[in-house]
Design a protein around this nucleic acid. Structure first.
Lengths: 350, 350
DNA sequence: GGACGTGGGACACAGATGAGCAACAAGAAC
DNA sequence: GTTCTTGTTGCTCATCTGTGTCCCACGTCC
């Protein structure tokens, strides 16, 4: 209900003191010496008038806006961006900061992304979060360096900016581990064709896990396709099409939930029931898919919320001088990808 | 590359003129009479120094921040919020405005939502967009009234705020129309159980369309369940479980894509192929589901992007005094829900 | 001596902050 | 016991942040 036309000056008049005193009282300035009575007079006057500070004027004087810029790729395309935003929003709100959001495209020119950052800079945000849609090596506009910045879900080419990324290796190990734990010995991997860290690291983790379990990781079947439902379908058809049924995998690790969805259909067409005849595990934990497939898809969750929150926490720390980001920039921070158990894994048929 | 410590004052010194003149030149003030030479001196000095205006100071002076507040429900839960944000972001960017986003929950207390709005007000946003997760009647915090505001995807209880909502009736008619057009005469409706406008209006449109086509709309089978995949599954099982096969619907209109996904599974279990034995049409156009089901689901798209853009356009118009929002507040603006044709509709078997 | 063309000074926006001033008390010097 | 010193308390003044804008000053030409 705070009336927007009430200023510190009005409070001062109402309380019969100077604006300086009001400012001191309201900001709990440590070195200010003010009697308890005066303090009360000011506070009650402020309350009565419904005074609220004008953050603009404050910011102008203090050179702190209490605003964080968030440039996010493809806000609408994936729910992932939403979770990063949510994590950032809650972390920011908890520390009294606000969020200015700008949408950008991963495929946008460096120049246009520079302009996006510039727009935030013009508004004097205290720091910037740069969130990408998926984990990759990204080229960042140079003006990002003007204020403390943190990169979310990617690593910078040239990498001298603090970044937080998901633990691809650990996630993939958890997924494959769940399959091995259930007793599977013939496990296939349906991989993505894009040249991104996840593609390489998940494959590597897949092979390593099998090998560590005493299986022949290098010989395990791997099929790559575009990381969409139809790609998953095609890859699954190929991987399950072995003439020799005894040779066919009894479990599939899929690059993501969308590909797993394709694998579900391939299995259905081949008369394979999940998880009876075939166990499946995905990656991403896209609620809309994973929770709604039948049976529910066991998958690995990407820590988008956590990355958003982590990045915001540390960005604010840096803004407030509590942390030195350049120190953290040496290596990206890696956040865990927990396994989300549903009903798509069972023991292989004996 | 604009250096953050360059002010109008520095430009003035560099150009050998007063700050007033710089301000006049850079803002193209109409009544200012300044010689072309001076103009050029100022402009090149500004460019050379990499001058960029401090929007904070501008805002303080002009009482205009060029910022719009967007409070959005459940940013992360549905992709819908993302599309609204995207529409708003692009519309805002096109007119030189920025977006401050705050996430809130539909179930949050009125007080906490008031605090969210207050946070935006403190930062002196020029206007506020209040976006809900789904179309309903919502109770708004009173302080929303302090600045121009537009409600997106809902109507206010008491309704004296400009709002933009989807055309439930038209969308439902398009969906049912597509079924009728394909030749279906036995059409069922799988409805939601929530008491929201969409539930009522889609049902009404469903019956009306059938009746207008000379069928018995009141007798058409309708089953209601929670608007989730399993609800759709249950409802579809019931609706397709008629003993008399000649009585069974040959087409299903589903409240949303998630329920349609359930209907797909029910059909599969009953040995009904889509669209050969059963045509299905959904609502929402949730890409992740609709485009990825097999066959692709024909559905009705909700105009989230458009609503976000429309609301932003008109909000800015109001902020700039080009529109009187109170006039538009009389009736909510209704935006069309276009049919998205995929492959889940075919003519009924003869 | 106006009219016109050019440009600058001063103040406002809302609040933050270091320096400084008046009032009073305690202690010290005479 | 008075006066001076020193210190403390309580509060205010002036100035600053970067821009926009009203109003006025100066010079020149008719």
């Amino acid at each position: 209900m705070s009336n927007k036309n009430i200023g510190i000056k009005d409070v001062a008049v109402a309380a019969g003191v100077s604006v300086t005193t009001v400012s001191h009282v309201l900001n709990d300035v440590s070195y200010a010496r003010i009697s308890p009575e005066t303090r009360n007079k000011v506070k009650s006057a402020a309350e009565q008038l419904g005074y609220g500070p004008n953050r603009l004027a404050q910011a102008l004087r203090t050179q702190r806006t209490g605003m964080l810029g968030l440039v996010s790729e493809e806000i609408a395309t994936t729910p992932h961006a939403g979770r990063i935003i949510l994590g950032a929003d809650e972390a920011a709100k908890a520390r009294g900061y606000g969020l200015m959001i700008i949408n950008t495209s991963g495929s946008a020119s460096l120049e246009s992304r520079r302009a996006d950052v510039e727009a935030l800079l013009e508004r004097r945000v205290d720091g910037i979060l740069y969130a990408t849609m998926y984990h990759r090596n990204v080229e960042l506009p140079a003006n990002l360096g003007s204020v403390p910045s943190v990169l979310v879900d990617s690593v910078a080419r040239g990498g001298n900016i603090t970044a937080v990324i998901p633990d691809e290796d650990g996630g993939a190990r958890a997924a494959v581990g769940a399959l091995l734990e259930a007793g599977h010995t013939r496990v296939g991997f349906i991989n993505n064709t894009d040249d991104v860290p996840a593609t390489r690291q998940r494959l590597q983790a897949f092979r390593a896990m099998l090998t560590e379990a005493g299986l022949d990781g290098d010989a395990a079947p791997v099929e790559s396709e575009v990381s969409e439902v139809h790609g998953g379908y095609e890859a699954a058809r190929r991987i399950l099409a072995r003439e020799d049924r005894a040779d066919m995998p009894t479990a599939l690790f899929c690059y993501n939930d969308r590909m797993a969805m394709g694998a579900y259909r391939a299995a259905a067409e081949l008369g394979l029931s999940i998880p009876g005849d075939l166990s499946v595990v995905g990656f991403d934990d896209q609620e809309l898919i994973a929770a709604n497939l039948h049976p529910g898809l066991t998958t690995v969750a990407l820590p988008h919320y956590e990355m958003g929150a982590w990045a915001t926490e540390h960005l604010i720390d840096a803004v407030e001088g509590k942390t030195d980001l350049t120190l953290m920039a040496l290596h990206p921070t890696i956040l865990g990808c927990p396994l989300v158990r549903r009903d798509s894994i069972a023991a292989p048929r004996p």
